[in-house]
Design a protein around this nucleic acid. Structure first.
Lengths: 205, 205
DNA sequence: CCCGTGTGATACCGATCGGTATCGTTCGGG
DNA sequence: CCCGAACGATACCGATCGGTATCACACGGG
């Protein structure tokens, strides 16, 4: 098919990605499964079929690797927001539902591995660590975009609705992880629709 | 001065609790501030003004200490449920609101240290670790009691309502931790009231 | 053709990890 | 009064931590 594969080398194994990508993939896998602090750089290097030295040629420190990984994960969520807005322009309600469905679809993974941000924040004690700043800015951006979508959906109190939606989204993820609630995805989507229908927080009165 | 204090020893410092209590206190402090995996037994022992040996006389292993600590934290939450039921017998709505207020009151601490369960679960990869089993059983019990309260409150769909309340409660805690939402406590209580008024998930239609 | 860059492999660094062994001391109950 | 249990202190165990140094080799562009 392809005339000249990118960098097959003479390796018998599957076509290898550049080391940096392999390291990030391996780190993702291990960070999710074992937790940030439980994984050593040695284990990451081995799983990436390379060595510790190669890892430290691409990442100044383990924390830098963690930060880079979190940046990629955050970009994934952001692109879900992008897609929601691109597929349903001017339809705030559909945008929110699209985001909610994205989160709901990810719940099976979350149930086994946990939310990358929530799990990572546990191992990042200092509030001014670069990786934590990244997480907090990401969450703040998400809330802002969610608020915008709620405005476009014409709900009564966009700020309140966006906050409540955030609670539901985050809460569904931790509930999926500790396995206390069943049919989490279904319940999450129902609750999100409820918030959208009702507008802000207490709408009955 | 004092005729016979419990166990002052001849220590000049403040009256000391028995070592086991001191160790648990020190562990709680450090586990919350730094995270389970980041804290070494040495650090715990030093903060408890004792030694590693004394610690291992009371706890078979570090994991056992973690488990015992989580058991105590879980008992704290359970007693909040007990109080809610004792102070508002037969009034399910007031019971739920009491629990919600308990969580809301704890949010300032959560914002700085994070939820003990959520943070710990990140460092407990294996699902069948005793400490994780404890967390999951605790969360399951909470959901059951919440469901009972919703039934007593006469909501339409108690199971759905309890699940949504769980999402809100958990989500508010992680949102407080990452600081994305402001006025978390106020918003949480408003959202909880909304769920109680509305009954189950989507009630508008 | 050859040279520099990125790579793999190995060994090493000091520090710390969870956990254990061995002491002497202290203290309270029978 | 005295004996045993709990305690404090210290040293130690092998393993692993994050991070560094060194060296040989493969490979592609000039």
């Amino acid at each position: 098919m392809a005339g000249s594969p990118p960098r097959p080398g003479r390796d018998t194994r599957v076509a290898r990605l550049p080391p940096r990508e392999r390291i990030l993939d391996a780190a993702e896998e291990l960070f999710l499964r074992e937790g940030i602090r439980a994984v050593g750089v040695q284990a990451i290097a081995e799983r990436a079929s390379t060595t510790k030295m190669a890892l430290y040629r691409h990442f100044a420190t383990k924390d830098a690797l963690i930060e880079e990984w979190l940046r990629i994960v955050a970009a994934g969520y952001s692109s879900a927001f992008d897609r929601a807005q691109a597929e349903h322009p001017d339809d705030g309600r559909a945008q929110v539902l699209s985001v909610a469905r994205f989160v709901a679809d990810g719940l099976p993974d979350i149930a086994q591995r946990g939310c990358p941000f929530v799990n990572s924040i546990a191992g990042l004690p200092d509030r001014d660590l670069p990786a934590r700043r990244l997480i907090e800015e990401h969450k703040a951006t998400q809330l802002r975009r969610l608020t915008g979508m709620c405005e476009r959906a014409g709900v009564r109190a966009p700020q309140d609705a966006a906050a409540e939606l955030t609670f539901l989204l985050e809460g569904a993820q931790v509930s999926a992880q500790n396995g206390s609630v069943d049919r989490v995805a279904q319940r999450l989507l129902a609750a999100v629709e409820g918030v959208l229908d009702r507008g802000g927080a207490a709408g009955g009165r």
